[in-house]
Design a protein around this nucleic acid. Sequence first.
DNA 1: CGCCAGGCTTAGG
DNA 2: CCTAAGCATGGC
Length: 295
Amino acid sequence: MTTIKIKPPEIFNYEECLWFLDRGFDDCLHQINKNTITKALKIQNNLFLVSIRYEGTLLSIQILQGNPSAKEGELIKSYISQWFDLYTDLEKFYKIANKDPVLKPLIKKYWGLRLIGIEDLFEALCWAIIGQQINLSFAYKTKRALVENYGRTIEHNGTSHYLFPTPDTLSNCSVEALKKLQFSRNKAQYLISLAKDFRDGIISKDQLMALDSKENMLTRLTNLKGVGAWTANYAMMKCLKIPTAFPIQDVGLHNALKQQLGLKEKPTLESIQQLAKNWKNWEGYATLYLWRSLV
DNA sequence: CGCCAGGCTTAGG
DNA sequence: CCTAAGCATGGC
């Protein structure tokens, strides 16, 4: 069996990353057993099942199914590294966070937490759309229904491991079929329309990564039906890894700030913009650590 | 007639 | 340009 080792940067806490993957919600796209993460991946159109553990000072990736070539092994390594956002220099974030009264206690408490990404842009946007304006438990429930109905699976030791449905598959769904999975008519239409846009190459991660500014990305993303400022920033944060992506309208962010600052009401957008001046160039990580503070 | 959830679009001022 | 209504359902 193939095993791949990854040496994480100095600022890294596996337990904190694990927390984000296992924070009480029922995510169907990975499984956690004690300290081991199991996840199905598609690399260059081949499916692999991997398990991830932290041993000593290394991330240890075992390939449970699939037989990766040398190149595919490298791609898996790269995928996992990006999934855990290991390439970001958190030292810089901690330096500015240390001067900020809101973030200072959080970076101490949650030291080593990294942004667990959603590497596939289609999946990231679908997930953001699914989660709009509903509670997270219900969002995970409907995501599971979607994935179990339309995603590919890898069977291993009697357990099914799912991949997120492809644009091709979802573009052939009917609104009525998705409504049966408890999506609203609007969301069903957004998801199908998004799937068609990806299928037809109107949008892709590569296209966006080739753009030179966050503003251009935002425009391209918000031109998609169902994608507003919050969804676009969420996707830029979780998938495109833009450090300045900032879902400032996020309810969770508002609640976290209210709690951290001891406010009676949720902060206004203007007051958040004021606070965020201290977070310049690290708005995404500031948001992540504030989300983390919500118990 | 309960209000808020990791919002967005469209219609109407 | 700005505001309001509608969307669907679950949890508290």
